[in-house]
Amino acid sequence: MALFLEILSWGLLIIGSMMLIIGGIGMVRLPDVFSRMHGAGIIDTMGACTILLGLTFQAGLSIVTLKLVLIVVFIVFTSPTATHALARAALHGGARPQLDEPVEDDPASQGEASSKT
């Protein structure tokens, strides 16, 4: 059982580290600010939460575990709110998402259903 928890913890930490680096690469490579938010989303959800859960299995059942779970809950609840506030600020501040095909100038005010390819 202890070995199983150890292996699980290892796996979660390694997956989380990989996802962190992938999200960081995404934040550097992706073309515009709205796309980079997806990279930040990977860092927040899969990266940080997976690493913290891996640490949870490492700590055994104690008050440390509960604090880690509390941090995960905080991140999960606050990350989408912060991202949405930033996206709204960017949209109102004049940043326009870079799209594959040209669409209307202001996507917020148009009634058309879809602009994807």
Partner: peptide
């Protein structure tokens, strides 16, 4: 939930 899922971000 949309924002929490990577690949989709609610902007407005």
């Amino acid at each position: 939930s949309i924002t929490l899922t990577p690949g989709t971000v609610t902007i407005d």
